[in-house]
């Protein structure tokens, strides 16, 4: 597999985004570290998707800065950055007329990984991913015939196939059954161990809590709270109460429940 650069951290400082007269983000500062899982919580319309789009480089902030390893994102080589980026959105971003195998083959070639992309290394990797997301039996069927859950599994494989160092997951558990939820949680843990930076937008507190090192709460475009947890210790209950406590403290408060805080947001 061709080497891609690793990011140590990605941070934002005083990020603002306006859509006309409507303010989607208002002074968001955060820091995401390699080998950490961060959950991004917030009500509908809080600005989560806008923040994700800015972190992915698909949207320019009105004001403020995104830094990758202490370098402004605007100065980072665009192609290298996208090579390290894995984004899972609400849409699977797969071609309906192609099979899951063909879709993954295409993405292997797009990301230029497992060179030569048509070689056995690529085929083995694709089969490994099809097994990992339990799509072996449906690997040859057109994507348009797959169920919502199967589509989500394919989208997960497409997102992680090239071993990105910045992984942005928007509601990744949508449509997954119990086995799928367990599979995704295991993959998130593996990606964390590999040293990826993971940001998960979710409303599924109970599932995500044990996987998190850090929880960010976005409220009306502002970062309401940043809560740190020892990895594996969080539960839905603790997360919810911490979330409420943080919400009562007002914007930009921070609570540290961790014995050894893994990150230090600005």
């Amino acid at each position: 597999m061709s080497a891609s650069p690793r990011f140590r951290c990605i941070a934002t400082r005083d990020l603002y985004k306006d859509y006309g007269r409507q303010r989607a983000l208002a002074g968001v500062s955060l820091q995401l570290q390699a080998g950490q899982v961060t959950a991004l919580l917030g009500e509908n319309g809080a600005g989560k998707s806008t923040l994700l789009s800015i972190l992915a480089g698909m949207l320019q902030p009105t004001r403020g800065l995104v830094r990758v390893d202490d370098q402004p994102l605007t100065e980072v080589d665009d192609v290298s950055f996208r090579r390290c980026l894995g984004v899972l959105s609400h849409e699977p971003r797969c071609y309906a007329e192609l099979s899951p195998r063909e879709n993954l083959q295409l993405f292997v070639q797009l990301y230029d990984v497992y060179r030569p992309a048509t070689g056995s290394a690529a085929s083995e990797a694709i089969e490994r991913w099809l097994r990992a997301v339990n799509l072996e039996r449906a690997a040859g069927r057109p994507v348009r015939t797959l169920s919502r859950g199967m589509l989500q599994r394919l989208a997960i494989a497409r997102t992680l196939l090239h071993q990105p160092s910045l992984v942005l997951l928007d509601e990744p558990y949508t449509g997954l059954d119990q086995a799928g939820v367990a599979m995704l949680s295991s993959l998130i843990t593996q990606e964390r161990a590999r040293g990826a930076i993971l940001l998960i937008v979710t409303h599924d507190l109970a599932t995500v809590a044990p996987l998190c090192d850090q929880v960010l709460v976005l409220s009306k475009g502002r970062l309401g709270a940043c809560i740190e947890l020892p990895f594996g210790s969080g539960t839905g209950e603790t997360l919810l109460s911490a979330y409420r406590k943080a919400d009562q403290r007002g914007p930009r408060s921070r609570s540290s429940d961790a014995a050894t805080p893994p990150g230090s947001p600005p």
Partner: peptide
């Protein structure tokens, strides 16, 4: 969007 986010 998937294509635009890839390193192409």
């Amino acid at each position: 969007r998937g294509l635009l986010l890839s390193p192409l």
